[in-house]
């Protein structure tokens, strides 16, 4: 009995869609547009996070020791800096490495090389490269190196402050994200109204059939289930098409995105690794379709 009822419910659900093909098409279309705008939001968030991380990774501060600084003193500074929780990494460039790097950098400049050769011994001191967890933490760390004792052995400090750039980047992307989210919310509202209307029209066009179903003893579930099943169909088709479109569009633009960032960042790979997003989207759209269907049925299918 359950089997036959289920088959008939599916048949009635298909009939509903077929009889209101225009509205069904519109419902699925608006759901696809909503899902696309939401996936644009997801992609933008992923790109922003990656961009900020990339810029952050390029920031570091260098502390140049005087050539006269003893290895023990340099070691002491290193130990001192390691006590800071803000410090993520410390890399020491020895005097020889500093010299080799300088030579490599200026090998095509005979004047510089000649000047260097005229000097006796290695004019460079060791260099300590500091990386902190957040760009804003460099100031604290570098300030700690301004004590008179340390000033004697430290010749200079350099720090390329990209924090302003990061903040601007985050601000712009936050604004764009807010705009995309607003558009998504608007599409969600439109989708809700269209689904509500589709089900309402379906119920209205079938009011005679529904009243006869009730008259001959159909259960409420038997009458309502086809409309709920329509919601499932709208959800699966819209998410399916949206996923296909997302991957289709990314197939074209991913290489350009990789060119802007680094080859290691791919939005296709991001969506594949986070495919649970689409499961959440199915759940969300199903909730939306069932909520609007339930409200339409409550209003127009009172027993």
């Amino acid at each position: 009995m359950i089997f036959y009822s289920t088959v008939r419910i599916i048949k009635f659900a298909v009939q509903n869609i077929w009889r209101n093909l225009g509205l069904s098409f519109m419902t699925v279309t608006i759901l696809i547009v909503t899902l696309l705008s939401f996936n644009v939001f997801i992609a933008m968030s992923a790109m922003t996070r990656h961009a900020v991380e990339t810029v952050k990774d390029k920031i570091d501060a260098s502390v140049y020791f005087a050539p006269a600084a003893a290895d023990a003193q340099v070691q002491e500074v290193q130990e001192f800096l390691r006590t800071f929780p803000e410090v993520k990494e410390l890399t020491l460039k020895t005097r020889d490495e500093a010299l080799a790097q300088f030579r490599e950098k200026h090998k095509n400049n005979p004047d510089v090389m000649a000047s260097l050769d005229e000097l006796e011994g290695n004019p460079f001191g060791p260099t300590l490269v500091i990386t902190t967890h957040e760009p804003g933490q460099y100031e604290t760390v570098l300030k700690a190196l301004t004590t008179p004792d340390l000033q004697k052995i430290i010749e200079g400090k350099t720090f390329d402050n990209n924090e302003g750039f990061i903040q601007r980047l985050q601000l712009i992307t936050r604004r764009v994200e807010q705009f995309v989210l607003g558009i998504t919310a608007l599409f969600l509202l439109i989708a809700f109204l269209i689904i509500f209307n589709t089900i309402r029209v379906a119920i209205y066009t079938q009011r005679e059939e529904i009243s006869i179903k009730k008259l001959v003893g159909a259960t409420n579930w038997f009458i309502r289930a086809p409309f709920l099943l329509d919601g499932v169909a709208y959800t699966l088709v819209s998410v399916g098409v949206a996923v296909a479109l997302v991957f289709g569009i990314l197939g074209f633009v991913d290489e350009y995105i990789q060119a802007v960032f680094t080859a290691s960042f791919s939005l296709i790979a991001y969506f594949r690794a986070n495919s649970l997003i689409f499961v959440y989207e199915i759940a969300a759209v199903l909730f939306l379709t069932w909520l609007s269907s339930a409200l339409a049925m409550r209003k127009y299918l009172r027993a």
Binding site: M1, Y4, V216
Partner: peptide, 28 residues
């Protein structure tokens, strides 16, 4: 129940109209 205005489904045949009452009850 029998009504004056029949309450038959115009898009279904005589057989289907009668069968409809059994279908909604889950009859094989």
């Amino acid at each position: 129940v029998i009504f004056q205005d029949f309450k038959l489904l115009s898009s279904r045949t005589v057989f289907e109209n009668i069968a409809f009452a059994l279908q909604v009850a889950g009859a094989p």
